[in-house]
Nucleic acid binder design. Structure first.
Ligand code: MN
Ligand code: MN
Ligand code: MN
Ligand code: MN
Lengths: 231, 231
DNA sequence: AATAGTTTTTAGCCATGGCTAAATTGTATC
DNA sequence: GATACAATTTAGCCATGGCTAAAAACTATT
């Protein structure tokens, strides 16, 4: 069992290297073509810097780079990306459950911690949480050997009115958005009764914990739910 | 209450900047003259690199630098050093108590984590531990406003034979040494009965948890104890 | 197929913070 | 005070990874 993928690599990866690989992985799984501009915008650096970094990652056999083409992770690159993503999501859950850090703050904290925890600490965290499968936002936690479980659910925006659902995933890391949802009681596993959906992609009327709220359609599209009975 | 001392500073400090300040603080409190060679050896970089860094820290008003003189922390530099040291020791205790990381492994882990935790996380950790005063090695945890409590005790090597003591501090971070002491049952607050001390700085005979062991004099010098009755 | 517009790459700059080797300064000894 | 030795600083090199501006390469439209 190969544990430390940086051991397969001559010089160790910096935090930024790791964040680039993670970004490419996330963009790939979104189904997007990971063009230079998409990547550079996501990562928050200039296109020139992204090209620069991608070429370095290609030299280390972590990505496939062909000029003017979309970047793609190599198997090794994917393993590194998944390892960092595992750190990230384990840390989010740990910070939330063990230290009561609010779910809208764990992301930025994990963004730094993910690069500096050892294998032993990763294992200790996973064990203390009982080897969890999802983070506080319902994002799947990759397993130690790089498997990602498929998460169930469909957007609340495409659900039937008059039924009750359970929130299983929120497709956003935005602090303000998460804080707002939390205020409405829309945290993970919350029960939502969908009263009605206004036509023309209008707002939805939902009931959460006895209170009624209106949700914009694009907000509801980020909420993945399953029927409440199915548990 | 000024919280983030890097906010008083134009550009943020790197991990290395922080480790240099911490090193200078520790060497100062040991009573040593913090010459360039002492610092460079402690920090593990060449003397030229140490000079380089010290000059930068001086430009930021974190240390006083005069060529060919010992370096000294400014009040601001000391605050930064103490903030990082607080992170370090809180993290050591947290890792040990909450995640069962052995006391000989927490140091290297904290060495990286100390630079990336937020003020909020620092507070959450301190709260979850009940605002502790010492780390797993008995080193005092600086308070949020930079106060360091005086730790009691004297070296086991300078103690009276025939009496029982309580271990309150170990003056070493060496992994192997700590692992060895742990195997003997010599963790923090362990009770040690001092049977006899061989003359000419010879080994000491001690009894810990019902077992008898011989301890080299220089090892015993690192163990700070108080009389067991004084609890 | 020419042209216009967009995307990507290249070229070259800069700050950071290591390093080695050489020059300088300080200190101890005769 | 001269001289030797150690400590420190300086000078100059290098890799990293940002950046801007300009060049080049794709893509779409006429
Ligand atoms: Mn990150
Ligand atoms: Mn998440
Ligand atoms: Mn450190
Ligand atoms: Mn310690």
């Amino acid at each position: 069992m190969a544990k430390n993928y940086s051991s397969e690599i001559s010089n160790p990866l910096s935090s930024n290297h790791e964040d680039y690989l993670k970004a490419i992985y996330i963009l790939e799984t979104r189904g997007e073509q990971v063009t230079n501009s998409v990547l550079s915008e996501y990562i928050g650096y200039t296109p020139a810097s992204a090209t620069n970094m991608v070429k370095k990652l290609a030299q280390m056999d972590l990505v496939i780079y062909r000029p003017h083409q979309a970047v793609a992770l190599t198997p090794t690159g994917r393993r590194v990306a998944l390892e960092i993503l595992r750190h990230h999501r384990l840390l989010e859950l740990f910070l939330h459950k063990t230290l009561d850090i609010p779910w809208d703050s764990v992301h930025e904290e994990a963004e730094r911690l993910e690069h500096v925890i050892s294998e032993a600490l990763e294992d200790a965290i996973a064990a203390s949480l009982g080897y969890p499968k999802v983070d506080p936002h319902g994002d799947p936690i990759p397993s130690k050997n790089g498997e990602v479980s498929h998460t169930p659910g469909h957007p609340l925006s495409q659900s039937e009115a008059g039924r009750t659902y359970r929130l299983v995933r929120v497709l956003s890391q935005e602090k303000e958005r998460l804080a707002y949802l939390g205020e409405l009681g829309l945290h993970l596993n919350a029960e939502v009764h969908l009263r009605e959906q206004a036509p023309f992609d209008g707002p939805m009327l939902v009931e959460v914990a006895g209170e009624e709220h209106a949700l914009a359609a694009d907000m509801a599209a980020l909420l993945q739910v399953v029927p409440a009975s199915a548990e």
